[in-house]
């Protein structure tokens, strides 16, 4: 896989942060992390039917003394809006990595509205938003974001830019 190196570094950052539950709605940009989680006997990989399940899961994990991360695409952020009140009200950390669509060379116009609104939607619900644009900064951003979430007990999202992930290529 072409981008395996920075994504492996991100996975190692998740492990160093003590995360043991990795919930996801599948996305090509997260494919390497998802594969790593399924191979890792110390990580529980949890496929979701919809993204807000992961917000509730992460709250339950923290109640039980464990740390979770939610992997999703920007289109899934809208599904999470009301559920984001749960970690905020319960004063529980929430940590998510979001692959961006609708910004860099997007082919599919249906991805644009939610992609454009993603940072504002997250911030409106009290989520701290960090962004990684370059491969060499991705793991450090994830590491800092995880520390912010779990040490300061807040909700934190890292947006992995579409330029970093690479635009989805459709064969015409």
């Amino acid at each position: 896989m072409q981008q395996a190196s920075w994504q492996d570094a991100v996975y190692e950052a998740l492990r160093r942060a003590g995360i043991r539950q990795l919930a996801y709605v599948p996305d090509a940009g997260h494919a390497r992390l998802i594969a790593r989680a399924h191979e890792d006997p110390e990580m529980r990989a949890i496929v979701l039917t919809t993204e807000e399940e992961g917000v509730a899961l992460a709250t339950g994990a923290w109640l039980g003394g464990a740390r979770a991360v939610l992997l999703m695409q920007s289109s899934g952020v809208g599904n999470c809006i009301n559920m984001l009140s749960l970690p905020q009200n319960a004063h529980v950390p929430f940590f998510t990595l979001i692959t961006m669509r609708g910004e860099w060379g997007e082919f599919n116009p249906w991805q644009v509205p939610m992609g454009s609104a993603t940072p504002r939607v997250l911030e409106a619900m009290g989520v701290h938003v960090l962004r990684a644009e370059r491969a060499e900064e991705a793991a450090a951003t994830v590491e800092a974001a995880a520390a912010l979430a779990f040490d300061s007990t807040v909700s934190v999202a890292v947006l992995l830019s579409q330029r970093l992930i690479g635009p989805k290529v459709f064969v015409r």
Binding site: E52, G60, W62, L63, A66, N89
Partner: peptide, 21 residues
């Protein structure tokens, strides 16, 4: 743990907790 909101989330809170414990 009582939910006063987050409708639709109770079962998933239970899953995260069950996997953690």
């Amino acid at each position: 743990f009582y939910l006063w909101g987050a409708m639709g989330g109770a079962a998933m809170v239970g899953l995260g907790l069950a996997l953690a414990q």
